[in-house]
């Protein structure tokens, strides 16, 4: 590895439009879908906490999926521009596989229920490392460590269906952290949590930052993350504002989010 500082994320002129799969009879109508992202440029430095803010439908989730390679590897569409993770282009290069990315960038999706795979808490955390053929004793140690970190000790053998919202979310975070990625992306992590859950999540983010991880958080409830290094406002698939939290006028955010 070179001595220069590796840049976790660089996005260059990224434009993406979902394919509309309309099957009207035999003719295939290729109706032009308005792009969900247009001309995004973004550089995110190592160890920073970045919050993406924007009204519903502005393209935040789509951007997360581009950063994690889900678009275009698993969800197809018309993509232009480049996404670089630690200097390696992932969007245009078809030799990059999604499983290779999972040890670099982890994605905690919005719905915990949609990403909990196994029938007990400890098995679900072990799912990723098992897939990458980690030896059993090492998985055990890693899982016990993550269970303690997320405060799930009493729930190790519980069925995830019986966890509270906050516990489910911490389980999904643990499941993604088990892949030991350097970048973590969270899609609306606190919007469905109560005050206690929010506070707990903020603690987790601060610990991850202290551990040197780069963190991206999509959230309406941006004021919870006033300690972030940057707030980025996304509007109609474009970056509308990008600054330290104190430099973005609250009135602007409120107008954009609640119009």
């Amino acid at each position: 590895m070179s001595t220069e500082k590796r840049i976790p994320i660089e996005v260059r002129n990224l434009t993406f439009a979902y394919e509309r799969d309309e099957k009207s009879g035999t003719e295939t109508t290729t109706t032009a879908v308005p792009p969900a992202l247009s001309g995004i440029d973004l550089t995110i430095e190592s160890g920073t906490v970045v919050v993406l803010i924007g009204p519903s439908g502005s393209g935040k989730t789509t951007l997360c999926k581009c950063l994690t390679g889900i678009i275009p590897k698993l969800i197809k569409g018309n993509l232009d521009g480049e996404v670089l993770i630690f200097g390696r282009e992932i969007a245009q290069d078809s030799s990059v596989e999604i499983s290779m990315l999972s040890t670099q960038i982890g994605f905690v999706m919005q719905e915990p229920d949609h990403q909990i795979v196994m029938t007990t808490v400890e098995d679900d955390i072990a799912f990723g490392p098992e897939n990458s053929m980690m030896p059993s004793p090492e998985i055990r140690a890693l899982v016990d460590h993550l269970i303690a970190d997320m405060g799930l000790e009493a729930k190790a053998e519980t069925n995830p269906n019986n966890l509270s919202g906050g516990e489910k979310q911490r389980l999904t975070v643990a499941g993604v952290l088990a892949m030991e990625p350097e970048i973590m992306v969270f899609d609306e992590p606190v919007s469905s949590l109560d005050a206690v859950g929010k506070a707990h999540f903020v603690e987790i983010v601060k610990e991850l930052k202290a551990a040197g991880k780069t963190i991206i958080i999509v959230e309406h409830d941006y004021e919870v993350f006033d300690f972030a290094d940057r707030w980025i406002l996304i509007k109609d698939g474009r970056v509308a504002a990008d600054a330290i939290p104190s430099a973005i006028p609250k009135t602007l955010l409120e107008r954009e989010l609640w119009r």
Binding site: I70, E97, S99, V117, F127, G128, P129, S132, M134, M179
Partner: peptide
């Protein structure tokens, strides 16, 4: 979404897997 989540956690990336 589940199949996407499983793939991002490396499911089926290897011909075999280990077990805790």
């Amino acid at each position: 979404e589940m199949s996407i989540a499983m793939e991002t956690r490396g499911f089926r990336s290897q011909p075999r897997r280990t077990y805790m």
